[in-house]
Amino acid sequence: MGSVRTNRYSIVSSEEDGMKLATMAVANGFGNGKSKVHTRQQCRSRFVKKDGHCNVQFINVGEKGQRYLADIFTTCVDIRWRWMLVIFCLAFVLSWLFFGCVFWLIALLHGDLDTDYKDDDDKSKVSKACVSEVNSFTAAFLFSIETQTTIGYGFRCVTDECPIAVFMVVFQSIVGCIIDAFIIGAVMAKMAKPKKRNETLVFSHNAVIAMRDGKLCLMWRVGNLRKSHLVEAHVRAQLLKSRITSEGEYIPLDQIDINVGFDSGIDRIFLVSPITIVHEIDEDSPLYDLSKQDIDNADFEIVVILEGMVEATAMTTQCRSSYLANEILWGHRYEPVLFEEKHYYKVDYSRFHKTYEVPNTPLCSARDLAEKKYILSNANSFCYENEVALTSKEEEEDSENGVPESTSTDSPPGIDLHNQASVPLEPRPLRRESEIGSRR
Rank of each mutant, 00 (worst) to 15 (best):
F103D: 00
A421Y: 05
S392L: 04
E247P: 12
D299W: 06
V310Y: 09
Y356Q: 15
C54I: 07
T276E: 12
I184E: 03
I281M: 08
A186V: 10
V61A: 08
S35N: 06
L369E: 01
I79C: 10
T200F: 06
E371A: 08
K354A: 09
G248I: 02
I179P: 03
K123D: 01
G29E: 15
D299Y: 03
E133V: 02
D348P: 02
E247G: 06
I184C: 07
Q66W: 15
S173F: 12
P424S: 14
S144R: 00
S406A: 12
E340A: 05
E63V: 06
W96Q: 02
D17N: 04
R197D: 14
I72Q: 13
Y356S: 15
E307W: 05
E301A: 01
F382A: 12
F203L: 04
F167L: 10
D294Q: 10
N386D: 13
C130F: 07
K342V: 07
N55A: 10
A139H: 05
I178V: 08
V86W: 09
G261D: 05
L290P: 02
K354M: 12
D160R: 02
V347C: 12
I179T: 10
I269N: 04
V304A: 08
V131S: 01
S124Q: 10
L230E: 04
R5M: 04
L306M: 04
V202L: 09
I275A: 10
N386H: 10
V388M: 06
A298W: 05
E311P: 13
K196A: 09
S408Y: 07
A379S: 15
Q318L: 10
I436Q: 10
I87K: 15
W330S: 01
R226E: 14
R268N: 08
H279I: 00
M191H: 04
L201N: 10
S242V: 13
S273G: 12
G154F: 03
K128I: 09
Q255H: 04
I277Y: 03
A70L: 05
S45E: 13
T409M: 13
C383Y: 08
V48Y: 10
K215D: 02
A165K: 02
I72E: 15
K36H: 09
V278K: 06
F47R: 13
Q66E: 04
K215M: 12
Q318A: 09
G152D: 01
M19I: 13
N259G: 09
I164N: 02
R5H: 10
V310E: 12
V61M: 04
V222W: 02
H229C: 11
D267F: 07
L425P: 13
E247F: 05
Y349E: 09
S322W: 01
D71Y: 04
E371W: 02
W96Y: 02
F171Y: 04
K193G: 05
F58C: 14
R44P: 09
D180V: 10
I269R: 10
D416W: 05
I174H: 01
A207F: 02
T200G: 09
P429Y: 07
I183D: 02
K50S: 06
S246Y: 04
F143S: 01
Q420G: 13
L90D: 02
L216Y: 07
I256L: 11
L201F: 03
L239R: 00
K125T: 15
G402L: 09
E387Y: 02
S434P: 13
S408H: 11
P429K: 05
A139W: 00
L417K: 07
D294W: 01
V304D: 00
L230R: 06
I281Y: 00
I295K: 03
I164W: 12
Q172I: 02
D299F: 05
A192I: 14
L109W: 15
N378D: 09
F47D: 00
A189M: 14
E426D: 11
R236C: 05
V222S: 01
A210I: 05
I209W: 00
F270L: 12
V56I: 08
N135D: 09
H418M: 12
E63M: 07
V12Q: 11
I328Q: 00
S228K: 12
F141R: 01
G248V: 02
L85V: 12
I251D: 13
A237R: 00
E63A: 13
L329I: 10
Y250V: 14
D112H: 01
P413K: 10
A366N: 01
D114L: 11
V56M: 09
D122V: 03
E311S: 08
A181E: 11
T361F: 14
Y250C: 09
I281N: 01
L324T: 09
G265N: 11
P413H: 07
G2R: 03
A129Y: 04
F98I: 15
E395R: 09
L216M: 05
A210E: 11
T276I: 06
R428H: 13
A379L: 09
I295C: 09
S406I: 10
Y117P: 01
D368M: 08
S173H: 04
L97Q: 02
E335D: 08
H343N: 07
C130K: 02
R82L: 08
V337G: 01
S291L: 01
L306W: 10
E394I: 07
I258M: 08
V403K: 06
I302K: 00
I328L: 06
G214Q: 14
H38V: 13
G100H: 01
S321G: 13
C383H: 13
L90P: 01
E387H: 01
S95F: 06
K125M: 14
V347R: 00
V358R: 01
D51R: 07
V102H: 03
F98V: 14
G65Y: 15
G176Y: 02
R8C: 07
F98A: 14
C89I: 14
F98D: 01
I184M: 07
V272H: 08
T150N: 03
R197C: 14
F352W: 06
H229Q: 10
C383S: 14
G185T: 09
E433G: 11
I164H: 13
L324W: 07
I375C: 14
